[in-house]
Design a protein around this nucleic acid. Structure first.
Lengths: 142, 142
DNA sequence: TTCTATACTTACTTTTTGGAAAGTGAATAT
DNA sequence: ATATTCACTTTCCAAAAAGTAAGTATAGAA
């Protein structure tokens, strides 16, 4: 049997068609959401950051700088980024292999876009930490 | 920065402690990474976006606008965001219950920081789409 | 009296994720 | 002959994430 989303159920229960949140094309919304869901991934962001500030880099070094990533995840992340047009992978036909990664212009522009988030994070670390502590204290009292 | 041969790197790694990538405090790096890992979560970003542009909102409506989120995940996301000091949860003591969520200033500033990412995503949707297609075509040929 | 509405919580199951470890290939060094 | 290098790939498995469905509380409406 087909499954329903919370939205469909809610709409059905209300007996009304759901009104769209905005008048912009929902397909675009969906695509943007999907893209953000993909791109806003921990390792993608970290790799992006490293390549943005260090430039071209080889696989192993990238893994070292990323800190705690497994080979599997690194390959996976890099392949996705390559597929999305964020990085360029250059294979030098030598033995042992040498593969270099660097950002495309698209990748660099994404890095720039995320820049604000990095800045926010470093600026607001302690605010978040404080908020958590007071939240946890309140929770402990109940 | 000068490049090393595979041999030089290997030799160095065998005999020296690895030098940190940067001279900034690695604890801060870690914290920022952790914070970004938490905050750069699909639902967090979507909820943030909705609250940023629509203002205060009730639980169910939020779920409708988020699209396809389960109650469990919505509660979870909202709780985390509350704990991190990003949203304020206001319970109105009525029956049936009425609970409203709105961004704190911290939440709004995070929304602003992510703004760049949203803009990037909507601007570059087709570029990414194209990149994927050509990548998949190349892959299919091999 | 039974139903409805809202905002959850809980228990259970399924799906996804990701780590660990071993294997690959080909040239060069020992 | 054997070891070593890099950039992977693959397989297996445990753990985490997330969906599903049912339950809860309470006032007022039908």
């Amino acid at each position: 049997m087909r499954k329903f989303t919370a939205n469909e159920i809610a709409a059905a229960q209300n007996h009304i068609a759901q009104t769209p949140p905005e008048n912009i094309d929902p397909r675009i919304e969906n695509l943007v959401n999907e893209l953000i869901g993909r791109v806003a991934d921990k390792w993608t962001m970290i790799v992006l950051d490293i390549l943005a500030e260090k430039g071209e880099m080889r696989f192993t070094r990238l893994g070292e700088l990323a800190g705690g990533i497994s080979q599997k995840m690194l390959t996976q992340t890099l392949r996705q980024m390559e597929r999305d047009g964020l990085v360029i992978r250059t294979v030098h036909p030598v033995v042992p292999p040498k593969v270099e990664y660097r950002l495309t212009e698209l990748g660099m522009s994404l890095g720039a876009a995320f820049c604000g988030v990095w800045i926010w994070a470093s600026n607001n670390l302690d605010r978040v930490e404080q908020a958590r502590q007071s939240f946890d204290q309140k929770a402990a009292k109940s």
